[in-house]
Amino acid sequence: MNLVKVMDVQEEEYIYPGTRMCAGCAMALIYRFALKALGPKTILTVPASCLTVLHGMQGFCTTKVSVLHTPFATTGASASGIVASLEEKGLNNEICVVAFAGDGGTVDIGIQALSGAAERGTDFIYACYDNEAYMNTGVQRSGATPQGAHTTTTPGGKMKPKKNMLKIMEAHGIAYVATANGSYPIDIYEKFKKARTMIGTKYIHILSPCPPGWGYDPKETIKIGRLAVETGFWPLYEIINGKFNLSRESKKYLDPSKRKPIIDYLGAQKRFKGISDEDIEDYKTYINNLWDEIKKRIDH
């Protein structure tokens, strides 16, 4: 099925090889395809996160597009400032502004600036790569850490489910909201391509498996991310001006019998070691409710 598609993807790489990312990092793969879709007429802004590290240190960077590093809480505001300056210069139609932040920088410390930027209808793409904890500082829990996951600050497993950032962003009434996943690079590519052509605030939330943080062998990255989709835990969809559209890769999981058991996903990661039966039941309920809602939105 990828036969045609794979050749349609921009061949040029926008990240030079030899970055500081861990082997098997899904974020590096996500970023690779996001930048391919965005192209050279882009300005990035990045808060404190693993992506700061990908961009390289002092004096030397890794990407073929400019990046403005910005403090943790400011990503949405930083992007707004770049957009305002480009508007003043009459360059806003030519250059795309893209904010790229981790889950902590998005759902926790950066949510205010992001909400403000979205409310103002700022013409930019905000991408959250979600590795479900503060990985860059050593795997502390974030608001996006899922229930039952062990982190260095939830040694007994997190008690609460992850914050539903997609609903929060959708409630802002922005132009585009989408989920994505590092194991589906062509889907990522298409979504960024689409977002780039739209006016207004575009939000893309990408699940980003993390070998050291989640506890699995780096070679398993794609498999783990795929399981999140195959179990129905992480449906791929987009909401274009309020209209819900289930992405190709997730369509078949409308049928519950097609979904793999959630334990396949949880059991493959050390962070869920010893997860309780109650937590697993909560996951099952969560997934069922999630898909009931998706089904309603599609039928509607």
């Binding site: 090889p17 390289g56 030397f60 890794t62």
Partner: peptide, 18 residues
């Protein structure tokens, strides 16, 4: 300001990691 310019192998020859 601390400004970066693009280079190949910012983190060195990362092939040596494995």
């Amino acid at each position: 300001a601390s400004i970066q310019k693009p280079v190949i192998g910012e983190a060195g020859i990362t092939g040596t990691w494995s």
